[in-house]
Simulated scan of single mutants.
Amino acid sequence: MVTQSQKNSEHLDVPEQLSYSQDHVWVNTAETPAVLGVTEYAVEQLGDLVFLDLPETGTHVDAGDEVVELESSKAVEPLICPLAGTISYVNRSAADDPSVINSDPYGEGWILKLELDDDQPELLDADSYIRIIDAQ
Rank of each mutant, 00 (worst) to 15 (best):
V43W: 06
T57M: 01
A30S: 12
I87K: 03
V67F: 00
P82C: 13
R131W: 06
Q120K: 12
K113P: 01
D96K: 08
I111L: 08
A135G: 11
E108N: 02
G107E: 06
V61C: 07
E71L: 06
P121I: 03
D96N: 09
L46M: 15
Q22Y: 07
A95F: 00
L70S: 03
P121F: 09
E31F: 02
L83A: 10
L70R: 01
R131Y: 08
G37D: 02
A95K: 03
Q45F: 09
E10H: 12
S93T: 05
K7E: 15
V38D: 00
T57R: 06
I130E: 13
H24E: 05
L12E: 02
Q120C: 09
A95T: 03
E40G: 08
D65M: 02
Y129S: 10
T39R: 11
K7G: 09
W26H: 11
T39Q: 09
Y20A: 04
Y41Q: 10
S88T: 10
L54G: 07
D97V: 01
V25A: 13
L124D: 04
I111C: 00
D127Y: 10
E115S: 06
D53A: 04
A42S: 11
I132Y: 10
N8G: 06
P78K: 05
P78G: 02
V90P: 00
H11L: 14
Y129T: 04
R131H: 12
I101H: 00
S73D: 05
S72W: 01
V2T: 11
M1K: 10
W26T: 03
H24L: 09
G58V: 12
H60S: 11
P15Y: 14
S19F: 12
E10M: 14
W26Y: 14
L123H: 07
Q120I: 12
D23Q: 14
W110C: 00
D96C: 05
V14G: 12
T32P: 03
Q22G: 08
I133W: 11
Q22W: 07
D104Y: 08
T32K: 11
E115L: 07
L70M: 15
E66C: 06
V68M: 06
S9D: 12
P98V: 02
P55A: 12
F51I: 02
